[in-house]
Amino acid sequence: MATITVEGKEVEVDEEGYLVNLSDWFPEVATEMAKIDEVEMGDDHWDIINFLREYYEEYQIAPAVRVLTKAVAKKLGKEKGNSKYLYELFPYGPGKQACKFAGLPKPTGCV
């Protein structure tokens, strides 16, 4: 099993880089995963990651991109709730990449 090292701690990830145990997540895990993917994390990234974690907490699923976009528009405004904006933040896909940084499983319905 692959691992990444965050603040001296070994964290298990699967072959696609997603956390094996969701409970292993802490904010620096997201920062480290972003570094590996060459994404510089800013407040805008954290807004989405925190949103995804709250969504997972409530519904126990990682939302599909379409659902994420709609929900972000409702919560954070239309200028953030569109796929162009989200893809700029997370070039490998707001569903797949943001969920990975947030420590969630790959979104259900992500094809």
Binding site: Y59, Q60, I61, A64, R66, V67, A71
Partner: peptide, 14 residues
């Protein structure tokens, strides 16, 4: 066990 009942509440979003 994993409580997946809350996921039914997300169906409206889908």
């Amino acid at each position: 066990m994993k409580n997946f009942s809350n996921a039914y509440k997300a169906l409206g979003d889908y």
